[in-house]
Amino acid sequence: MSQYKLPVGEVIETGIDFLVEHLSFITKASAKVVETVLGAMESGLLLVPIPVFIVLVGVGVWFLTKDRKLTVGSALGLALIWNMGLWAATVSTLALVVVATLCAIAIGVPLGICVAISKGAYKVVMPILDVMQTMPAFVYLIPAIPFFGLGKTAAIFSTVIFSMPPAIRFTCLGIRQIPAELVECSTAFGATRMQRLFKLDLPLASPTIMAGINQTVMLALSMVVIASMIGAKGLGGEVWKAIQRLQMGRGFEAGIAIVIVAMILDRVLQKLGTRKEN
């Protein structure tokens, strides 16, 4: 059987090579832009004195969730990260996650709307999403390198691809779940599709869309760690270093820092989602 191997890998490689050859000047240029933005963001965040930053996060969490435990927990968690000497790495990871998530949402939510509205788009996009979600995350890293070179842009690229599916799926689901009688009502009152989208679909689907965004953020965070293999640095980079040097303690410290960041983001986003529901 394996004597006559179908050239699956070869075809894909040729395709990507072709794209790289003709597109890499664009992607490399955009890599520069992204890197500059990221760098500015990072140094901006690092400019804030750490205690002030922690207080600001605490105030922000309190303002968004009104949850005392969560507020105190967030502040303590960040203090622990500071204490472990992982502050700069955390800020770097945070910047990466924020940029990647924003990209994923900016592409994913509108795409989700398209998929919800158009049956044709649904049929095309859904299988692609299945592939995107089941493909091992590491595979995305490989083509990212020729396009963007080693570094943060390649990391963001593969993170966006990896974390976008829930944003698309949940947006689509939220809109398709709108009760039929409300849809009929908006039609009966003569609403256009756009009016229905903004007056009914999006407001009503927003808790579901928020749940999708939450998932996207979590996936982005996990991917950012994996992407450290292609030079994402940050907390993932710390873990990667620890693996290579077999520093168990150091590895766990970085791991704990990731967990803290993930929990803060997750709880705050969840609260935002459910608050809209009530």
Binding site: E181, A188, F189, K199
Partner: peptide
Amino acid sequence: QRKMGMVFQNFALFPHRTVLENAALGLEI
């Protein structure tokens, strides 16, 4: 929009809108 108003069995009110905003829906459209 202008000639026919419709009333539904299960009311079909928009849950995220106040009563007043619901009543104004047709005019808003």
